[in-house]
């Protein structure tokens, strides 16, 4: 229970003859996904390209992506977790009543057909979007789909992958992991990394008013977070590094304009499948890069006295035997 069974996008391009998009609208949100990676490409294993692949879209409404799908499954809002759990039971041959299946908005015939196709596939891939991961159930919805993909490997090859949002979210996640052991939701207040989503994750810290300063880079929480979080950002000293004026920069005490990454500043971005891509700037910018600003802030901090009195070290929360 737990973990993730996944692959790089090139594997999908080469091999995936069965693709499910769940709670995502790639036609509008990831417009190159179909053509570059998933359904349009021909490969040695799938020489007829689109004809050799089956695409299923699962969503609560008919989006533009439905046109590209072979099968569109419209489910009732808030029934994702239930449907995935039904699939987990059915693939193992456990009985589920027809009326229970119908609650999700799909008939037994449709669900049976979906399972038959999943098991028949040579290489199945599930992509899931914010329609799954940010609706009621949140991380458990994602966990459910990851679990289903892992369990499908008892029958055939199956993988799953989240459709990450804009910006270099994956890169931040990857680097936090190698430096601290955790992807996000980390506190350093005891002098070493500690992890507890819900306690240390940004949105929760802001909503509860647990921080007395904020340093924001490559994000615009002022546009996406709940109002109490935004109110707290306005109350405390907030520093924003951003090439643009944003909702957050408007409420910030300090806004440092930086060169846009990938356009005027070099670096590395991690693709949603965690492959690092070098960014080669096309333009010059009069503004410093985020990296340079952070480096200079760091140097200035290094000249200040250590945050604890001389001779004192932070103490670990005692480990339990």
């Amino acid at each position: 229970m737990g973990g993730k069974v996944t692959c790089t996008l090139g594997e999908v391009k080469q091999r995936a003859d069965f693709i499910i998009y769940w709670g995502g609208n790639p036609a509008e949100c990831h417009p190159r996904h179909f053509t570059k990676y998933t359904i349009m490409q021909k490969s040695r294993f799938l020489p007829r390209g689109r004809k050799d692949r089956t695409m299923v879209l699962v969503d609560i409404r008919e989006t533009k992506s439905a046109k590209a799908a072979d099968i569109f499954l419209q489910i009732r809002p808030g029934k994702d977790f239930e449907l995935i759990t039904i699939l987990r039971a059915l693939i193992k041959g456990q009985p589920v009543a027809d009326e229970q299946i119908a609650e999700t908005g799909l008939s037994r015939a449709v669900v049976d057909d979906l399972i038959a196709r999943m098991k028949r596939a040579k290489f199945g891939c599930m992509f899931f979007g914010m329609g799954l991961s940010m609706t009621r159930g949140k991380h458990m919805n994602s966990a459910a789909l990851l679990c289903l993909a892992a369990e499908m490997n008892a029958f055939t090859k199956f993988v799953a992958m989240p459709m990450r949002g804009h910006g270099n979210v994956t890169g931040a996640d990857v680097i936090m992991r190698w430096q601290t052991g955790f992807p996000f939701g980390i506190s350093f207040n005891r002098g070493y990394p500690r992890y507890n989503p819900g306690e240390f994750s940004t949105v929760d810290v802001l909503v509860r008013g647990d921080c007395d300063a904020a340093f924001i880079i490559g994000a615009d929480p002022g546009a996406t977070m709940p109002q109490p979080a935004i109110d707290h950002l306005a109350r405390i000293p907030t520093i924003v590094l951003d090439p643009h004026v944003t909702h957050t920069s408007r409420i910030a005490r300090v806004h440092i304009t930086t060169a846009p990454q990938g356009i005027a500043a070099p670096g590395t971005a991690y693709r949603m499948d965690e492959l690092p891509m070098p960014l080669k700037p096309a333009l010059k910018s009069p503004y410093p890069s985020d990296e340079e600003v952070v480096r200079r802030i760091n140097e200035a901090i290094a000249r200040k006295p250590f945050w604890l009195p001389d001779g004192r070290q932070p103490q670990m929360v005692a480990t339990l035997g």
Binding site: F188, N189, R190, L308, Q315
Partner: peptide, 9 residues
């Protein structure tokens, strides 16, 4: 006894 107010002891 030491308590932690944020990062301060």
């Amino acid at each position: 006894l030491t308590v932690y107010h944020g990062k301060r002891q």
